Simulated assay, not measured.
Amino acid sequence: MAPPDTIRPGSALAGEPQLASALGAGLPALEAAAATGGKAEKRAYENARDTYSLLAALPWRRLNYRIGHWASEANVWKAALTFDAWESYRWQRNEDSFQVLDPHGGARLGELYSQAKLRKLNGTPYERPEAIVAPGGTLEFAGEPATIGVYRPPGGGADTIRLSWNPYLNNEVLRDGIAALRDGSAGQLPPPYQFVDWDLLDKYRVWFADSPDKPAGKAPWASEARLYRPGGPPRFGKSR
């Protein structure tokens, strides 16, 4: 069965017919598996369908990225032994997300889950390895960098395309935007529905692209970031 999406002029699939064929060819088998399978099979089909819908509606954009960071994390056992919360914070590697950056000036356009983190959260639908490498570089992205989209290394084939979304937003809500692209009721994905203070969050972490080695000195006390909840007023810090 052919995918229901109309391939729009100027979209990623309009410029790459072979990619449209490759992605479309895999959908029937995934749909059949979803009809008789469990949660993993249903999510695998949803991912493939949403990937096709994004690429049928939107163009590739070449953007920069940085993946992995040093995070200020609490060492709970040390805090319990010393009764000193300040002493408990330490730098730890974190490869759960990557930031998408404007290639002209480096502004942060959004942050997305890495495939390793999605695999920890949801298992087999995200079993393929990450398609981008630390500490950063260039990727092609179709979607809204602040919410949800698909990406690949520049010029990559169908097997290099990965889906991801913002860790601070609900992916079920975000997929409603993709459904609107699919049924033709929207021309673009909606903007983020919650405020995220990137200045504050990056105050307590150091990206591998800026420091491949663990930062010198004690990690900062990160309670401010831990208390922060995207979606409310910018109570802590101020965004650029």
Score class of each variant (00 low, 15 high):
residue 85 A to S: 03
residue 86 W to G: 13
residue 91 W to A: 07
residue 92 Q to L: 10
residue 92 Q to I: 04
residue 93 R to L: 12
residue 96 D to G: 14
residue 96 D to A: 15
residue 99 Q to P: 01
residue 103 P to E: 07
residue 104 H to V: 08
residue 104 H to F: 00
residue 108 R to E: 11
residue 109 L to H: 02
residue 113 Y to G: 05
residue 113 Y to V: 03
residue 113 Y to A: 04
residue 116 A to T: 15
residue 118 L to M: 15
residue 118 L to C: 10
residue 118 L to I: 11
residue 119 R to A: 12
residue 119 R to Y: 13
residue 120 K to I: 00
residue 120 K to E: 14
residue 121 L to M: 14
residue 121 L to C: 00
residue 124 T to M: 09
residue 124 T to F: 01
residue 127 E to W: 08
residue 128 R to N: 11
residue 128 R to Q: 15
residue 128 R to G: 04
residue 128 R to W: 07
residue 130 E to R: 01
residue 132 I to T: 13
residue 133 V to R: 15
residue 133 V to D: 14
residue 134 A to S: 15
residue 139 L to H: 09
residue 140 E to V: 00
residue 143 G to R: 00
residue 145 P to Q: 03
residue 153 P to A: 15
residue 154 P to I: 07
residue 156 G to H: 13
residue 156 G to Y: 07
residue 159 D to Y: 07
residue 159 D to K: 05
residue 161 I to G: 04
residue 162 R to L: 02
residue 162 R to A: 11
residue 163 L to C: 01
residue 165 W to E: 07
residue 167 P to V: 02
residue 167 P to S: 13
residue 169 L to G: 01
residue 170 N to Q: 09
residue 173 V to Y: 04
residue 174 L to M: 12
residue 174 L to E: 03
residue 178 I to E: 00
residue 178 I to Y: 06
residue 178 I to N: 01
residue 178 I to G: 03
residue 179 A to Q: 14
residue 180 A to F: 01
residue 181 L to G: 10
residue 182 R to Y: 00
residue 183 D to I: 13
residue 183 D to F: 12
residue 186 A to F: 01
residue 186 A to Q: 07
residue 186 A to G: 08
residue 187 G to L: 11
residue 187 G to A: 15
residue 188 Q to K: 11
residue 188 Q to A: 13
residue 189 L to K: 02
residue 189 L to R: 01
residue 193 Y to Q: 02
residue 196 V to N: 01
residue 197 D to Q: 14
residue 198 W to I: 07
residue 198 W to V: 04
residue 200 L to T: 05
residue 201 L to C: 02
residue 201 L to F: 14
residue 201 L to N: 05
residue 202 D to R: 11
residue 203 K to L: 13
residue 203 K to D: 13
residue 205 R to W: 06
residue 205 R to Q: 10
residue 207 W to V: 01
residue 210 D to H: 02
